[in-house]
Design a protein around this nucleic acid. Structure first.
Lengths: 137, 137
DNA sequence: AGTTACTTTAGAATAATTATAAACTAATTA
DNA sequence: TAATTAGTTTATAATTATTCTAAAGTAACT
């Protein structure tokens, strides 16, 4: 556990962020997992602060998520409910969408046969696909 | 003009919406154009109500946009600022994204060579691509 | 024309997010 | 190690998009 924390302390430091107790705890929670994680600040608050003595204030959750986003450790996105969500996978990738939730699709799972040329003066920064699902029934 | 209005009056009626002065005016503004239109309720308010004597209330703009969406005449989407946007093109299609704005890409402009199989019990409802652009230099 | 049901509207209520500024703490300096 | 400083956390207030409410208005039907 101490070595785990050290990883996050360095991650924060190398991003110019002081490794405070709160930031380390949040980083550990967000990045110490196998699968990528999609969450809102409200999710984070509930998951992190319920059943805990020392709660992290909501302001800090917002601050930290913004800081991690600016540092390139989180990617922001929106669904149709006008809440900011964050993705711990910051690489360009694709998603399945079902029932208000996203699941990652690796980039190599989707190949294009034809793609439009960008308008003059512009180039493609990235291409992201959302596959909306529905029940078969 | 009267014939134009008639079109919208019928469009509204056939969707079970009473063609009120406000709804007809909004419909005309939204659907009486060549290109598809992407807007927020705030955009609509500014574009429709500035330089006008009889303004349409914001509540009505929300009501009408929701009604048009429910009737299948508008499609809702979100960008990264947590505001609801609406698209007058309700068919499944793709977009270029640059500088907070979307431009339509017709479905036939993009073809897939490979696409993942959906999880068990689910099928694909639609596939939508966003191509993010950046300036060349 | 009168009645009924649906609409519009101003304003209040809600909820996610941002701003503020005082208390706190990590890092730096002496 | 103690003192200084610069960056952080926090409670709370402010902001903003959106929804709710209920009273006044209007379209449609009898």
């Amino acid at each position: 556990m101490i070595s785990k924390n050290k990883t996050f302390i360095e991650k924060l430091r190398s991003s110019g962020l002081r490794p405070t107790r709160q930031r380390v705890e949040i980083s550990k929670f967000l990045f110490n997992r196998k699968k990528t994680f999609h969450f809102s600040v409200d999710d984070l608050n509930k998951l992190l602060n319920s059943r805990k003595k020392k709660k992290i204030s909501i302001a800090t959750l917002y601050n930290t998520v913004h800081a991690l986003k600016s540092a390139g450790h989180l990617k922001e996105f929106s669904l149709e409910n006008n809440i900011s969500y964050y993705d711990t996978n910051t690489t360009s990738h694709h998603h399945f969408y079902f029932n208000g939730k996203l699941t990652d699709i690796k980039n190599k799972e989707i190949h294009f046969k034809k793609i439009p040329t960008p308008p003059i003066g512009k180039k493609i920064k990235n291409v992201e696909v959302v596959i909306k699902l529905e029940n078969i029934n």
